[in-house]
């Protein structure tokens, strides 16, 4: 199952495929740093940092509709906000897979 709804996103962008490609490239370029920030926050058990880093990823991912990466980043943001970091690493593993899939789907446009 696809992690993002291409037709819906394209419609939102005025059916401009080139524009979607441009946004995808920008998003993909920023991903390694954003994922690193989240991973680092979890590894040092800093929930405030996790909240901020996950929020940022969510913001970028949100430009591609309410996709799986958006939802999972939101979960991590909430974990960071509430401060109970027990599940953070587990959720991060899910996020990694979804990010990989989203990148593949975006690259395939």
């Amino acid at each position: 199952m696809a992690v993002f709804n291409k037709a819906e996103v394209l419609e939102e962008l005025g059916d401009d495929v080139e524009f979607l490609k441009e946004l995808s490239e920008l998003f993909i370029d920023g991903l390694p740093e954003q994922m690193d920030d989240i991973k680092k926050a979890i590894s040092i058990n800093d929930n405030v940092l996790l909240n901020k880093a996950a929020h940022k990823l969510k913001g970028g991912a949100g430009n591609f509709g309410k996709n799986a990466v958006y939802e999972t980043a939101f979960r991590l943001e909430t974990i960071g906000k509430e401060g109970n970091m027990d599940e953070a690493m587990e959720v991060y593993s899910v996020l990694e897979k979804e990010v990989e899939q989203l990148v593949n789907e975006l690259n395939a446009i």
């Binding site: 962008l13 005025g14 946004l23 920008l26 370029d29 920023g30 949100g62 430009n63």
Partner: peptide, 17 residues
Amino acid sequence: EDDPVSSRRLETILEKW
């Protein structure tokens, strides 16, 4: 806006308008 994707998207659609 500090997120480059959101910023670019906004710029493009606002300029279109």
